[in-house]
């Protein structure tokens, strides 16, 4: 049976990497005594796979992994077990049963919602943040948003506008929905860098905090839905 598990990544654990999160859940599943399936052979491993990796220093309310289980109880029980034997910074919020033919989380990811809020570091910085917010509308209304991607060998110009599905300001924070996943992956920090450039302010990643709100996949009608909607609560 294939389950999809949604979890948060909060607080100080924004400093652990994607591999560390995977290792954490492998161990938490064992501590919680859940009957995850194992591969065969001399070094059997748990059959679990993670959706879009989150960059270091970003927190999230919408992370996912899929797991194959030999036995399941109920959504509530399994969620509780993972939280009892886990840490609050990696809280599990959903646990749903996927249809047998469901594609894995990694391959279906299409978009993510992010919230970016500026730290109130100083008066100067607050003025700067306000200036950036004021520029957002004009920034997004450009026909093309060109950034320069530097690789070791060359510099390449790229229009990132198609990757920005939506962007707006609410409560002095920037909310953006960006393409995520294997077909086109746009990172929020890249959008911020372009915005700073547009506003004529030197870019500093540590002026603001990025939080992923949700990860989405395409639904049957070509719209977007959170990844957990592909399954259903059980038990």
């Amino acid at each position: 049976m294939k389950l999809r598990i949604k979890y948060l990544k909060l607080g100080n654990l924004k400093f652990i990497g994607h591999l560390d999160v995977m290792r954490y859940f492998q161990k938490t599943i064992r501590r919680a005594g859940l009957k995850v399936s194992y591969s065969k052979g001399y070094s059997p491993h748990q059959i679990i796979s993670f959706a879009a990796p989150l960059a270091m220093c970003i927190t999230s309310d919408g992370e996912y992994f899929d797991g194959e289980f030999d036995e399941i109880s109920t959504s509530t029980e399994m969620t509780e077990a993972l939280n009892t034997f886990g840490v609050p910074e990696l809280h599990v919020s959903e646990c749903v049963l996927l249809p047998d033919d469901a594609k894995n989380a990694m391959s279906v990811v299409a978009a993510s919602d992010y919230r970016i809020c500026f730290y109130a570091l100083s008066e100067d910085k607050s003025d700067q943040a306000q200036h950036i917010l004021d520029k957002l509308k004009a920034f997004y209304e450009q026909e093309e948003i060109i950034i320069t991607k530097k690789t070791k060998k060359s510099e390449k110009e790229e229009n990132i506008k198609p990757g920005i599905l939506d962007i707006e300001i609410r409560d002095n924070s920037i909310y953006m929905m960006l393409s995520t996943g294997s077909s086109y992956n746009l990172k929020p920090e890249l959008v911020m860098e372009a915005l700073y450039q547009y506003a004529g302010i030197p870019y500093n990643f540590f002026d603001f905090h990025i939080h992923r709100i949700e990860t989405y996949m395409e639904d049957e009608n070509g719209g977007l839905m959170p990844l957990y909607k592909a399954g259903r609560n059980f038990g």
Partner: peptide, 14 residues
């Protein structure tokens, strides 16, 4: 964010 492997310094392990 400027050092290698920041998880070395944050504690909070299970």
């Amino acid at each position: 964010m400027s050092v290698e492997k920041p998880a070395r310094y944050i504690g909070g392990e299970y």
